[in-house]
Design a protein around this nucleic acid. Structure first.
Length: 570
DNA sequence: CTAGGGTTAG
């Protein structure tokens, strides 16, 4: 397999494992049947007549019956001279279907006939790359556009904002970009402002998001459903459901009634909070309130039930969906598939996947990930690797999630080196989660040098560490008693945001080691950056003081000074 | 051409 360099293939790994298991299997064969019930059930060769399995099959049948005919022209058709607007229409179409590579190809082809494409074409291209998270290309292409004398439009800038809206440094970027935008004669429009609001909400800066909304009104731009929906989502992701509900209610009053998207966000949050009755109520009132639940709404609701372990309810919703003449989508199938996996029907799920072609659906990477993730939890490494193999055989591209599952499975079986090999392969686009997974495993194995090396690799590959990464690094440094480095590491984490639980964690290490001076350094580091010292840091100080012997501490003056500053006396 | 929602991983 091409993605593993100089290392045995997964099938070899699978063989190695099954070799190791063979004596065990033999032993079981000869022992009384009582032991056999501790073994996983063998994969069932035939589909069982289980009600949920047949419901899933019915959903598949409905899915394949209602599948639209391919709306797209086949990629790679021979170049022919087309008008730029025809190219743009084609590119938009491929961009919407998520095929950024085909958009790039079309753009290149367009340049053969029209060496300087117009702003619209550039926008479409850049947007498709932004959607595909290919940020480096976004910036390069924008510069290229400007360099070739094509004036960016307001939409160009909005796309730039979008490409950064998940970046931890979004706000700084946006506040730099907007003046530039105005300077070049592009006034921010409703969509630019909405993008700004979306980014602020993602960064949990709700007050500022409201501020932008006020600014919009001042600029005589009316906020739209989209603008408010971003804020609803901001509240929901912070768990502030009451405020989200209140805002949704208020939207009706100000002539901006919440639509199906707004409700989807609210329903997802309600499900997560276990307020399923509230969801039911919203659905009952939907007609009266002027919105109509679509497939996505049911998917969200079904997924909510699935996550809460209410598998029967998920399948009940499938029936409701069908009676409302809504067709299952590939996402619906995936959620139901996940339900089967959770409902101890893993082996049936495996069987379903094996017969997908016969049943009438093309499983995508999500189906494989769901099943592999289940097998990973069950320590069924061989099954994981076999599915990983099947995926390649079918020509499905694994995503970073697939790799994370494989890495976890390998690590769980004690094969850390093999997991590391996956990382050395260039075709594996590791993301933060994948890195965190392996980092965590090396940490658990106390291979701190490997942790460090991997962290350096991560930085060099421009993967921005997140909270979990810093957590592992802080733990690692503390385990090595490098407390000052741990503090430095924490202070670096402030670049991506302030996480109180990281402070608490670091403090616990410092207290445990009786590192009073380091606690003071940390507290001062926080204060001089204008951050509020949490009560946990305060109590950690007291605890460390007690441990050290209050009177003996030479640092008492510094503690008092800190406490005074905390209380706002100085 | 551009703004808000759904499935998987730590």
């Amino acid at each position: 397999m091409p993605w593993i360099s100089n290392s045995p293939s997964p099938s070899a790994a699978a063989r190695a494992v099954s070799r190791r298991r063979r004596p065990f299997a033999r032993a079981v064969k000869q022992s009384p049947p009582v032991i056999q019930k501790f073994l996983p059930p063998p994969p069932s060769p035939e589909l069982s007549s289980d009600a949920k399995v047949s419901a899933f099959c019915a959903a598949v049948a409905e899915f394949s019956r209602c599948r639209p005919a391919s709306p797209l022209p086949s990629p790679g058709s021979s170049p022919s001279r087309r008008h730029p607007s025809a190219y743009n229409a084609l590119m938009t179409s491929f961009s919407r279907s998520g095929d950024a590579d085909e958009v790039i190809r079309l753009f290149r082809e367009l340049m053969l006939w029209h060496p300087i494409p117009n702003a619209l074409c550039y926008n479409t291209l850049i947007n498709s790359l932004a959607v595909a998270n290919r940020y480096d290309h976004v910036d390069k292409l924008f510069d290229e556009m400007v360099a070739s004398g094509v004036a960016p439009t307001t939409a160009s800038y909005t796309i730039l904002l979008k490409s950064r809206s998940f970046d931890p440094n979004f706000i700084e970027y946006a506040y730099k970009l907007i003046p530039l935008m105005v300077q070049s004669g592009c006034q921010p429009d409703t969509s630019s402002y909405t993008m700004l609001i979306a980014g602020l909400c993602r960064a949990r800066r709700m007050d500022e998001a409201w501020g932008v909304l006020d600014q919009m009104v001042e600029d005589k731009l009316l906020p739209t459903v989209q603008s408010y929906t971003c804020i609803v989502q901001g509240y929901c992701s912070e768990g502030r459901i009451k405020e989200a509900k209140r805002l949704v209610a208020r939207m009706e009053g100000i002539g901006c009634p919440p639509d199906v998207v707004t409700h989807g966000i609210l329903i997802e949050a309600l499900c997560e909070a276990g307020e399923f009755h509230e969801v039911e109520k919203l659905l009952m009132e939907s007609e009266k309130k002027g919105w109509k639940p679509n497939e996505v709404i049911y998917n969200i609701y079904m997924n909510g039930f699935c996550k809460a372990g209410k598998i029967d309810e998920s399948f009940r919703l499938l029936e409701v969906m069908l009676t409302n003449e809504l067709h299952p989508t590939i996402v619906t199938l995936n959620i139901l598939f996940e339900c089967l996996c959770r409902d101890s029907k893993v082996w049936e799920a495996k069987c379903l996947l094996e017969r997908s072609a016969q049943l009438g659906w093309d499983p995508d990477v999500f189906f494989y990930n769901s099943l592999m993730s289940r097998f990973c939890k069950m320590n069924e490494l061989v099954c994981v690797l076999k599915l990983f193999n099947d995926l390649f055989k079918k020509g499905i591209n694994p995503d970073s999630c697939t790799f994370t599952i494989v890495i976890r499975s390998l690590c769980k079986a004690g094969m850390l080196r093999r997991a590391k090999c996956l990382f050395s392969n260039s075709s594996f686009a590791a993301d933060v989660v994948a890195f965190n997974t392996l980092l965590h495993e090396f940490y658990r194995a106390q291979e701190f040098n490997e942790v460090r090396a991997l962290y350096i690799k991560m930085i060099s590959e421009n993967i921005i560490p997140n909270k979990f990464t810093y957590c592992i690094m802080i733990d690692t440094l503390c385990r090595e008693r490098r407390y000052m480095d741990a503090i430095d590491c924490f202070l670096r984490s402030l670049m991506i945001g302030f996480f109180p639980d990281l402070v608490i964690r670091l403090n616990n290490w410092l207290v445990k080691a009786g590192k009073l001076r380091e606690i003071l350094n940390l507290a001062e580091g926080l204060l001089c950056r204008g951050l509020v010292i949490d009560v946990s840091v305060f109590s950690a100080l007291i605890r460390a003081l007690c441990k050290e012997g209050y009177c003996k501490s030479n640092d008492l003056d510094r503690v008092c000074l800190l406490l005074e500053r905390m209380l706002g006396m100085k």
